[in-house]
Write a protein that binds this DNA or RNA. Sequence first.
RNA 1: GCCCCCGUAGCCCAAUGGCAGAGGCAAACCCCUUAAAAGGGUUGCGGUGCGGGUUCGAAUCCCGCCGGGGGCACCA
Length: 816
Amino acid sequence: MSEYDPQALQAKWQQRWEELDPFRASEDAADTRERRYVCDMFPYPSGDLHMGHGEVFAIADVVSRYWFQQGYNVLHPIGWDSFGLPAENAAIKRNAHPAEWTYANIETQATSFKRYGVSFDWSRRLHTSDPDYYRWNQWLFNRFFERGLAYRKGGLVNWCPNDQTVLANEQVVAGKCERCGADVIRRELTQWYFKITDYAQRLLDDMDQLDSWPERLLTMQRNWIGRSEGADVLFQVEGRDEPVQVYTTRPDTLFGATFFVVAADAALAEEIVTDEQRPAFEVYRAEVAKLSDIERMSTDKDKTGVFLGRYAINPVNGERIPVWAADYVLSDYGHGAIMAVPAHDQRDLDFAMKFELPVKVVVHTGLADPGETGVATPGEGKLVNSGPLDGLTKTEAIAKIIDILEVDGRGQGTVNFRLRDWLLSRQRFWGTPIPIIHCPDCGEVPVPDEQLPVTLPDMRGEALAPKGVSPLASATDWVNVECPKCSGPAKRDTDTMDTFVDSSWYFLRYCSPGYTEGPFDPEQVNKWGPIDQYVGGIEHAVLHLLYSRFFTKVLHDMGMVSFTEPFRRMLNQGQVINGGKAMSKSLGNGVDLGQQIDDFGVDAVRLTMIFAGPPEDDIDWADLSPGASQKFLARAFRVMDEVASPPGVSYDGGDLALRKATHHTIDEVTKLLDSYRFNVAVARLMELTSAARKAIDSGPGAADPAVREAAETLAVMLSLVAPYTAEEGWERLGHTGGTVARAGWPVADPALLVRESVTCVVQVAGKVRDRLEVSPDVSEEELRALALASEKVQGHLSGEPRKVIVRAPKLVNIVP
RNA sequence: GCCCCCGUAGCCCAAUGGCAGAGGCAAACCCCUUAAAAGGGUUGCGGUGCGGGUUCGAAUCCCGCCGGGGGCACCA
């Protein structure tokens, strides 16, 4: 093999890696190396790996291999998120079992990963659809249930009419199903929930620990959690004994409340509507129920509503205000009812204008009367028409009114969150059965731990077709069981868990994949965790990444993990697009990863992805040239191949200029990798390659030890991105029988980083007029004198300069 | 509508207060070659989207626009 032949290298080295198994994490207690845990979001086995996978796994592999080279004990595992709808749909179509499709795809992907040369510890491989895995979902569910963190409730839920299942709030994106894009509708169903809202404040507070997460990711989570401060206020409603509570962030505007609105779908509306208004209300409620989320949430939609015939009493001034039902008030936020202050809230104002309700200004903002302009004034100002609050600022008024309300027992300051509990039941088959047995006498009874796992019954093909209830319901033998408590006849819960449950803790399972005493061995988890570097897409900002944070906190509270955040550092890779657009079948602009590898080789494809730009940026394949990457690799390979000095030779006598170039490269590349600037690091390697090329062709020649030093440095550094080329180059350099992946990261010699002279730029009025070669440790005074003495500079000066700025040793700026 | 990020050469991108250009693509030219390919080399007056400001000095900081991308959007 004297030519650079990527396919031949792949065949050779893939086999050698199988034998060497170089990326096994060590659990040896005597191994005192510092541990590092790097993890990619595990793939869903939907087919073979695609370009997006190529990108993420190339990025995470740079981090992993870098840490291996630096001598850390690295954990870099792989597994599959193998429960989920596509398998089920494929099974229905082919009249097969979902497992057949799933496990065949997993094998395909595993083979592709091996070819792609990713530095995984294959011994820890897991699949969430294995009973050995999902039994621990059930075990964890039982723990959550015991702690009151898993509960069942009825209510309106998001329903995807295409996938025929409910969805969590997080899975509804702009009113559409996150998976399939269908318009989501609302249905009244009793479902299981995880009480993530109990952790809302901590999810918010602990973001302080996540300072190395991308800012936009944190913003998305913060918005999603949606904390607001305000007050609960009790309003008496005529004809009802119990007062009705509302939540408001503007209790200071309480005197400006001119009407009261109850969510149309709230039980309260139905309860308090008068007989006279009931027919109109029923019609309205039915209309609202028909609307999809998209229609209901459309901002430019006209306000709608209906008068309920009742009046509420403003607790601070005794005013009677009419009670309306409307769909702009949400039944599941706050208390499902609001006080409306049209002067200072645009939504309330829109409603007031539509139904000709009064508008009362209570904050003097200096802006025109909202009642006339139709523009609410939510800003700051002095309170007016507000009795004891008159003259106060917003902040003062809020504090004072809360005091007043609390003294009277009419209300209190409080905090609210936008975050809702996590709906986890799914009416589909290919997931973890919820380990609950419904007994007519005992109620909801968890399946005892020792009887776990509750495995899926054998069902295939048509039996899995969506019919709005879980397919498991028709597996009669499976459903009918004895109650674990009273042994009476009972039925299993027939829903399965959201697959986001599976992915909320898989990274913990990797730490002790064969563990049988629990979901993971706490000792191992606390040694490896939390993950030092997690890599995956931003699309999981309020899904997987939020759920995993929640799970980790619960496990922490259970005493099972010592940390409260699972991912110390997070990197969101960009997407791979083509011709400015996401790749898609309908556009016909798809690029096949396997084909690219066939054409250019693994290393060239990986290099192209890494070199394209910063890892978090989208990369457009149409702008890139894997052919050029391959050319560079061939060039680097030839340098390594042509080295003529023996391995182990001392570099001391080598060509100084090249030695310095090598050590500067080491220094810079190390810093660049530490700050995740992989594309720039690659550029540095290209420079070093050129420097070595020149040294061979027109410098000291291939036998100079400095050329070996440069080539060996190149091999080690290149191994992060182009492992095959690096391995072969390393072997050609005379290092046989091992792997370059464990060669060790080079360390720059400070003596070789010192430059003997630096070019100092001399500016006059900001324009470069001269350049001086000076010592790097030249003093400011010396440099100033040198600069002023320059003839070129003198030509641009007339008399004494007004000011001289000296930034030794690189710059002098003279202001004439 | 509100908030955030980004606009540097034909293209992808470096430079984060100090000479606008590190690296790559494309292009042109040269060497090598009978020739071509491969290989080696040389070539960068665009002044950083536009307009102001701060500063001795601005791609970088501030303000306002324009363009692109993203997030949120009846959450009271």
